[in-house]
Design a binder for these strands. Structure first.
Lengths: 343, 343
DNA sequence: CATAATAATTGAACCGTTTCAATAGATTAT
DNA sequence: ATAATCTATTGAAACGGTTCAATTATTATG
């Protein structure tokens, strides 16, 4: 293994000069710079990350902590496709700044905080990205209080102020309802995301406001507590369709859940988009390729990933600003929604 | 920040003893152990990963290098769901051994090897996991030659011997063909994965052997070079169905591709499973929830992740064995395939 | 009882960088 | 000619652990 000492010896300078070259090449004379440069190539030198990090207290790594049990696996609220898009976004900006993403699994929620604490305590990462933000999220309180750099993908109802990037879920819901009422729908059901997640609260507010704005009363029967998977969508849709007066439109927790709901509608011999309109959330790549294609409230995950990483960098660099970015979702209209047809 | 010195002082012992406690508690007397233990809790001490790693040359990190451009993103051949399952598998075993996964994006294939080199050179990771194994994969040659610990998810046609975990794609194809011919199909088309990937070669061998075993000749028109996305499946299926004598069964590159093919079949007013049988590859979670549900050759991604990580650990620990594990895929029969009905 | 063996602890060297005060040499100002 | 300034380089002290030969205390052996 080549060390900075080998380079110094080979180039006939002191290690201090090589270090200068590494960190600020301007500091060394042209001739010396050339000599060091060529020796580095020749001897295939890569400065030790550990030694660097020990001295500078910088790791150029960002931590991400999914919960992974042997069977189950919930990194976050965004589903597979969404999560990977987000990760790609994070990673792309990270790589541009020679950062990497360190993924450390926690076996369950009980170990979660410990894992964050260890990651920071051991100096494994410079900062953290939080996903799947919950109500009264302890992670936010913990990290804020300890003054550890982080960004969250999502707002929370905690007392402290913290940096986040979030999608305006309420506004998305309002758009969806405005669109549906515009099509003549009045019986608009809603399969909610998981209870306890902040996005659930926010979207609910949007649902309430959207219904009120359109002069519609909320029918408790039309609101079903759901989840992010097909099974939940399917079961919830069946519940809704079993009602004496079934809804004519259903807004779901996310696209995957919407697929399940569509399935339920179809197995009853009804036609999605004509008999029942269905709206998803996220706009994963499958939404456009589904049969019929899915109308959905799109979150630009890739860009959210960019924004999260950029925000985290500005937090890490100690700027006094606290990034709090809201992203507007977009309603993408496809075939799963259509005009209300009076029977 | 608490250091080992603080603990030593507080507990009234030398730092050597604290170090012993950290690495092999048996070495220190019961009484001393207790004292150190309580001081560590009290002072919230976490040993610095950098300092440790500098001395021991161990990082307890495993590297993974996806290719991420601002728009595109190909980590590997497995699609979203598959990749996450694999990652969950890796991460779970990693976490059990207090390892983390370090994900570092390379912007393109040209930068790929450099990224691997840097990761190892800087001592960022103890080993690497390779995915999307290609023909004459330079990564394998490079890492083998440099004696860097790694495992690959897939065999390759390189001259050197290396550790891998792989699914027997050929056997999977044979099973699929045996099953289809058993249903009476004789015109069996095949949409291949991306050219250049080793899994493409292996599955092709399985296709050839399977056809031969069933006494069927290979019709060049029935073989279409495909890809892992819906668009490719859709276009390829259209090509096949446009033939004067269209196939009655289509085996596809993966499930997502199969979804595209199903779409093509359906838009022509044909019924999947009756008029045309379709078989996917992977068995992602959607396969079972698709309409009609997809018959597919299942790869147990989660378990493959386990095996990859375990193999990598045995390579890292310097055992003389070279793990080379073959996993049998399984044919999962669902609704997208059915008996051949003579017209 | 002396000696050998065992157990517990210590102290210092070392891992490979960064950092910064000190120095040498060259250039400019007085 | 001397002092002041600037540029390029040096050398040594950190950073926070691990490791291992040396030391001390304790127990077993002949």
């Amino acid at each position: 293994m080549t060390t900075i000492r080998d380079i110094a010896t080979a180039a006939g300078v002191s290690i201090g000069t090589v270090s200068n070259y590494l960190n600020d090449p301007q500091l060394v004379a042209d001739e010396t710079r050339e000599k060091i440069h060529s020796k580095i190539l020749e001897l295939d030198f890569h400065p030790s990350a550990a030694a660097r990090s020990l001295k500078t207290r910088q790791t150029r790594r960002i931590g991400l902590v999914p919960i992974i049990s042997p069977e189950d696996y919930r990194s976050t609220d965004p589903g597979d496709n969404a999560f990977l898009e987000l990760l790609a976004g994070l990673n792309y900006i990270a790589a541009e700044n020679s950062y990497s993403i360190l993924i450390t699994a926690a076996p369950n929620y009980a170990q979660e905080l410990k894992t964050y604490e260890r990651l920071i305590g051991e100096g494994q990462v410079d900062g953290l990205v939080l996903m799947g933000i919950r109500s009264q999220d302890e992670r936010i309180q913990f990290l804020s209080q300890k003054n550890i750099p982080f960004v969250a993908y999502g707002r929370s109802d905690v007392t402290c102020d913290y940096p986040y990037v979030d999608v305006d879920g309420a506004s998305g819901m309002e758009m969806a309802i405005r669109y549906l009422t515009g099509l003549g729908h009045r019986k608009i059901a809603y399969i909610t995301p998981l209870n306890g997640l902040m996005c659930t609260t926010q979207r609910w507010e949007g649902y309430v406001k959207g219904m009120a704005d359109s002069g519609l009363l909320i029918n408790k029967d039309y609101v079903v507590e759901g989840d992010f998977n097909q099974r939940a969508g399917q079961m919830s849709a069946h519940l809704l369709l079993d009602l004496p007066e079934p809804p004519t439109a259903i807004i779901t927790a996310n696209d995957i859940c919407a697929f399940g709901a569509m399935r339920a509608v179809q197995t009853r011999g009804l036609q999605v988009g004509r008999d029942v309109s269905i709206i998803g959330f996220d706009d994963i790549s499958l939404a456009d390729h589904w049969q019929p294609s899915l109308t959905t409230i799109a979150q630009p995950f890739r860009k959210i990933g960019f924004a999260l990483m950029q925000s985290l960098f500005s937090v890490i660099s100690g700027e006094k600003v606290m990034p709090q970015i809201m992203v507007e979702p977009q309603l993408v209209i496809r075939q799963s929604t259509g005009e209300y047809l009076p029977v």
